[in-house]
Design a protein around this nucleic acid. Structure first.
Length: 351
DNA sequence: TCTGGGGTCCTAGGACCC
DNA sequence: TCTGGGGTCCTAGGACCC
């Protein structure tokens, strides 16, 4: 199968509608104001040359690139561009498309020459959307996904059982999709530092450290193994959430109450659009500077906004009075359709 | 340097039941 | 009087992804 990933997607969309920005360091993040608390969504390759990357505080990014063009996030524009790209993928004969995000998807195909197929697909995407993409080819989803990184920008790379360890074996485990800083550190503490070492471990030996599911799953990841089928089952959201980082920390109880009411209203908009009952709520609180906690409550399935709001406000009483609050988030969990297969998700389960 | 916003899934521990 | 073992549900917390 193929994994298709648009190159510097958000920055590329911005440049398309502002051609004068081509070749300049473009940084997209927050409301486009580097004085605010916000992070970089995407930086153009020109900006990345200065060491700017996704997730970096906007303030720092602006400091690194004095002549950067800093733009606010425009989700509607990216969603529109994304839908055009996905439509091109779906229009390919015999292709099964599994969308992973705005700018990437798996494409299941049968072909004796997948490189030629991929080149043709890149041309089609470019012709229809004026956007460049990189494509990974693999015999598992994990290998295709990892392969894409070696194709960037605008290239193609193939990873299979045959060359997986040659290419990935000496790399650190954090280079794997699904292994982050914490897990790579815990693996290192067990003496497992490279992908090759992880591939060689007995899956059961990781159970004491990571549990019965995650332990064997990490071992499988090290080998590049996993699902080989692209699943185009429509995705069904399990919940909706909204969160806000305050530019100035909140301590006043009335202000906190108001903020939660507003979050509840926004969450309820999304929930109402789905038309599915709410079965649980979670309030997330970040106390300044960075200590996060959550309070949750299951409720009998209800479509009633008043019940959801009342439950949310009830959870507010668990916030420590007087302690400065930097972020509030509210998540509503919804009932899943009776007959839905567990539904595809682009995360650990089933891979 | 100081960390957004929207998601998913897993784990651990306690409560409760049989 | 002091206690097993299994199962399920709930809450809180953690980790990762784009």
């Amino acid at each position: 199968m193929l994994h298709v990933d648009l190159d510097q997607f958000i920055a590329a969309v911005e440049v398309l509608r502002r051609p004068e920005l081509a070749g300049r360091p473009v940084i997209v993040g927050g409301r486009g104001d580097p004085a605010e608390r916000a992070v970089v969504s995407t930086a153009s390759y020109e900006a990345r040359a200065y060491g700017v990357g996704s997730g970096m505080p906007l303030r720092i990014a602006a400091r690194k690139v004095p002549d950067a063009v800093i733009l606010p996030v425009d989700q509607e524009a990216y969603l529109e561009a994304s839908e055009k790209v996905m439509a091109v993928l779906r229009s390919q004969a015999g292709a099964t498309v599994q969308v992973l995000g705005w700018d990437e998807a798996f494409v299941g195909i049968e072909s004796t020459d997948p490189e030629a197929w991929a080149r043709q697909l890149q041309q089609a995407v470019l012709a229809e959307t004026r956007l460049h993409c990189s494509i990974g080819i693999g015999d598992t989803l994990v290998r295709a996904k990892v392969a894409t990184g070696f194709g960037k920008p605008a290239g193609i790379f193939r990873l299979t059982k045959g060359n997986w360890l040659d290419v990935m074996g000496d790399r650190p485990t954090i280079d794997l999709w699904g292994v982050g800083t914490k897990v790579s550190q815990r693996l290192a503490s067990l003496g497992i530092k490279s992908v090759a070492a992880l591939a060689a471990v007995d899956p059961n030996d990781l159970v004491p450290e990571f549990g019965p599911k995650m332990g064997p799953w990490y071992a499988q990841l090290g080998r590049g193994d996993g699902a080989r089928v692209v699943d185009d089952t429509p995705w069904v959201a399990r919940g909706h959430s909204r969160e806000t980082t305050f530019q100035h920390d909140l301590t006043d109880a009335a202000e906190i109450d108001d903020a939660v009411r507003e979050l509840a209203a926004r969450v309820l908009e999304d929930v109402a659009a789905e038309g599915r009952p709410v079965v649980g709520l979670t309030l997330k609180v970040r106390y300044a500077p960075f200590s996060t906690t959550t309070f949750g409550r299951k409720i009998p399935a209800t479509p009633d906004p008043a019940v959801v709001l009342a439950t949310a406000l009830d959870l507010v009483s668990k916030i420590e009075p007087g302690r400065p609050v930097r972020l509030l988030g509210l998540r509503a969990e919804m009932t899943m359709p009776e007959d839905s297969r567990k539904g595809h998700t682009p995360t650990r389960s089933g891979w």
